[in-house]
């Protein structure tokens, strides 16, 4: 269930929830997207792997005051299951299957946590944006219940 996360430990970027992204090389470990070229929105662009292999990783800051709570988890897993790619989330040295509510609850990602989203598979490029947006969303929900 847990393992050391090699991709973590980077300095967080303040200001936006979605911080870095990029494709990892084949077995070469996580790529920190901080040095990747910026896209039109000012966020780092996704750099496609020419071979179409290797996971896309993105670091996302949890901004919801409740943290990664069950309602967000339910939306995240439902969205993740719409893609064929495997989805994995890391919070420090904790790792969770992004398509499992049970796994994601064990991440205990509180507000301010920088989680790493890793998507691997044929539709990874299409999956990473909507999944990252769910994680980064501040909520806009009723925080009193």
């Amino acid at each position: 269930m847990t393992r050391t996360l090699k991709a973590a430990g980077r300095e967080p970027y303040h200001g936006v929830g979605v911080m870095t992204q990029g494709r990892a090389g084949n077995g070469a470990g996580a790529q920190d997207g901080a040095d990747l070229p910026g896209g039109p929105t000012g966020q780092p662009a996704c750099v496609p792997d020419p071979a179409g292999e290797g996971p896309i990783r993105r670091t996302v800051r949890i901004t919801n005051p409740r943290g990664l709570h069950p309602r967000i988890i339910a939306l995240f897993t439902k969205t993740a299951m719409g893609f064929a790619s495997s989805v994995t989330l890391y919070n420090g040295d904790l790792q969770a299957d992004g398509k499992s509510v049970w796994d994601l609850i064990t991440l205990m990602a509180e507000q301010g946590a920088d989680v790493v989203l890793e998507v691997a598979g044929s539709d990874a490029a299409a999956a990473v944006d909507p999944l990252a947006e769910i994680l980064a969303a501040p909520g806009g929900e009723d925080y009193t219940i």
Binding site: P65, H69, T106, Q111, T144
Partner: peptide, 16 residues
Amino acid sequence: QDRPGDHLRALEAVVR
């Protein structure tokens, strides 16, 4: 209302 961390840890304990 002001202890979201405890809430997440309790949920984790139940699931674990």
